[in-house]
Amino acid sequence: MTGAAPLPLIEAVDLTRAFGGLVAVNKVSLAVHTGEIVGLIGPNGAGKTTMFNMLAGSLAPSAGTIAFEGRDVTRAPAHERARLGIARTFQITSVFPMLTTRDNIRTATYRTRGAGWLASTFRTAAWRRDEAAIDAVADEVLAFCDLAAQADIRADALSYGEQRRLEVAIALAAAPRLLLLDEPAAGLNPEEGQRLVGIIRKVRDRGVTVLLVEHHMRVVMGVCDRIVVLDHGARIAEGTPQEVAGNADVVRVYLGREQAHA
C-alpha cells in the first residue's frame, strides 16, 4: 500500500476459501474506498457469493485477512461487523416476515438507537426521545425506499419487489458506513430493477459506500463506479464499467456468455 493513498473503507487481502478440496476463492484482494459503488461480478461458480459471505462475516476465510477502516475483522462474527458499521442484504429475500414494514425498519435501528427494557418499563424521557427518533428514522427510510404506502403491512404480505426494497431499507436503517448488497436485483422485472438502481445511487449520496454482487449486467453497468470481475475463484479484471466491458478476458468468460443467453 502506498503511503499517500487514503485508507480503504474495507480491504481484503489474499482472501481464500476452500470447501473440501475445492478452492472457491483463491487469493483475491479487494479494496473499497469511502464513497464508491463497487460491483463484484463473474459467471456462476466464479466465487462471488463466497467472497461476499466472507466479507459479511457469515463464512470464515481459509486464509487471508479482511480489514474494516484499518481494523482487522477477519475473525469477527457477523454481529460484531454489523456493530462496526457493515450492513448487508441476503441473496434469498430476508426480512422479518411477521412484523410490519415499519417494525422491520424500527428493529433495524438496533445498532445506533433504542433504550433498553428498564427505560421502556418506566417510560423515561430518554426512552420517549429514542422512540421518537426511531420513528423519524423509520419515516425517512420508508420514504427513501418508496415504501411509505406499505408501512403498516406485514412484510410477508409485500410483493417481491417491495420485499427487496425493504431489505435495502432495513440495511439503511442500521446507519451503516458500508452496505453489502447480495444480488439485489435478482428476480426483479426491468422496471423494478430500474427503481432499485435509483435507490442504490441515492444511497451513496447518504454517505454510504456500496459493494454489490450482481448478475444483472444492466444494473451493474448502470450503477457502479468500479467493477471487479472474478472467474474460477480468481480476480481477472478490474476497472470502470467501460474498461471492464472492453476487456477481452471479461468478454470471453462472462459478457460473451451472458449476451449469448440474451
Binding site: 457477523a78 454489523a82 441476503f90 422479518f96 438496533y110
Partner: peptide, 8 residues
C-alpha cells in the same frame, strides 16, 4: 441471520 447482520 438478518438479526445478526444488524448487530444483534
Amino acid at each position: 441471520p438478518l438479526a445478526a447482520s444488524l448487530g444483534i
